[in-house]
């Protein structure tokens, strides 16, 4: 199980690098699809098959389609969306690398995290009931309001000038 988890994690990492490094945004979206599928399978291997299935359906199905739909809708001819090769961008990448190195250093020097890793979880609907409808009922309700607000905001944002 853990070997397969490493395999799918490395696959997700490589696809994630391709998302960042591809020049064409359509290829970025397809690399993102590979990354999402790999992460969904990693979740299934980590003992959360329900989350993995939901992840595959929503992300690999709906969100990638949304991205591709937006790219096709915009129909960009001029490839003006290149990398930002300015010094501030290099400084940002170096800063991100430094924070990453510091995070990994902290990760491998925290004694509580040096336990041997094993998958103890299995699918249990009671977790979702206790979590979503008891412990996190307030964030759950806030999320429903947030989705409504996002719906109204998207309609307001994409309304053309002059049309009521």
């Amino acid at each position: 199980m853990t070997q397969l988890y490493v395999l799918f994690s490395v696959l997700a990492l490589m696809a994630g690098l391709l998302v960042v490094l591809q020049r064409n945004p359509v290829y970025s979206a397809l690399s993102l699809l590979v990354a999402f599928v790999a992460m969904g399978f990693a979740m299934i291997l980590l003992g959360s098959p329900f989350l993995g299935a939901v992840f595959l359906i929503i992300y690999a199905g709906a969100i990638i389609t949304l991205f591709l739909f937006a790219l096709m809708l915009l129909n960009l001819r001029r490839p003006s969306f290149d990398f930002d090769f300015s010094p501030r961008s290099y400084a940002g990448v170096i800063a991100v690398g430094a924070v990453w190195a510091a995070t990994l250093f902290a990760l491998f020097h925290t004694p509580e995290l040096q336990r041997p890793f094993s998958v103890n979880a299995s699918f249990d609907p009671a977790f979702y009931r206790m979590g979503l409808f008891q412990q996190y009922i307030v964030p759950f309700e806030i999320l429903s309001v947030l989705l409504l607000v996002a719906l109204v905001a998207v309609l307001a944002l994409t309304r053309k000038e002059g049309t009521e």
């Binding site: 853990t2 990492l13 960042v20 937006a70 990398f83 930002d84 961008s89 940002g92 491998f108 995290l113």
Partner: peptide, 29 residues
Amino acid sequence: MTLAAALAFPITLFFVGLVGVVLRRNLIV
């Protein structure tokens, strides 16, 4: 494999995404 090693993959993936936010100018990417 330790728990820290298993957590290193999602953390690295997070920072790959952060590099994308810093490096790219296309809003969709």
